[in-house]
């Protein structure tokens, strides 16, 4: 039988306190995922039904946001050509931390039907860290919703650590980016 006598509460170390705060923060973060939709591919067409009355993602606390600074989740909906990839990386780096990435469709996993194109990258994970994938070409709307729920579960289990990996393995990501693009930031005909 447990003693009912008052015991002095053990003072938590700073690490433990931080962890507690982090868990509380995680609760808020997973219940309020604001999306930045990077709609380059065909999978973007699955988002309207997911947002409107058929599937209603607002019940998960999700909603669209206008700029990367405000958003938590980056949705990459489909194939990425080299031209868009550099912009995606720029956008991803502008997001405030913690930040998550969801890849849509087979294009982000292995290139999908564009796997042999010279202008399209095959694996998104090589360039920016992806937390959750939604497979399919194109994925069903149920699958999209499932992907979001998966992401929420990942955050709950502290496994959505892509943004930390981007810091720790930054050299590797940068190398892949440079290999594919030459340089991430460009000076093209519009920017002398």
């Amino acid at each position: 039988m447990e003693s009912t006598k008052y015991t002095q509460p053990v003072a938590l170390s700073k690490k433990q306190v931080d962890r507690k705060w982090w868990e509380i923060g995680d609760f808020f973060r997973r219940n309020s995922l604001w999306m930045l939709m990077y709609c380059t591919g065909c999978c973007a067409i699955e988002l309207p039904p997911a947002m409107t009355s058929a599937y209603d993602m607002e019940r998960l606390g999700m909603g669209p946001m206008a700029t990367p600074r405000q958003a938590d989740v980056l949705l990459v909906t489909g194939y990425l050509s080299l031209k868009t990839l550099r912009r995606l990386i720029y956008t991803y780096e502008q997001m405030s931390e913690p930040k998550y990435v969801v890849g849509f469709g087979s294009c982000t996993i292995n290139g999908g039907i564009y796997h042999d194109s010279h202008a399209v990258i095959n694996q998104l994970d090589q360039y920016i860290p992806v937390d959750s994938y939604v497979a399919g070409c194109m994925p069903n709307t149920e699958a999209v919703m499932n992907g979001f729920v998966d992401l929420i579960e990942l955050i709950k289990n502290k496994k959505a650590n892509g943004w930390k990996n981007y810091h720790t393995n930054n050299a590797w990501y940068k190398k892949n980016q440079i290999d594919a693009l030459g340089e991430v930031r460009i000076k093209d005909e519009f920017h002398q």
């Binding site: 990367p68 600074r69 550099r86 502008q94 930031r185 460009i186 000076k187 920017h191």
Partner: peptide, 12 residues
């Protein structure tokens, strides 16, 4: 200069 430009690179 590190500001939201809808993914475009603006240097000026």
């Amino acid at each position: 200069m590190d500001t939201y430009t809808a993914g475009n690179f603006v240097y000026t």
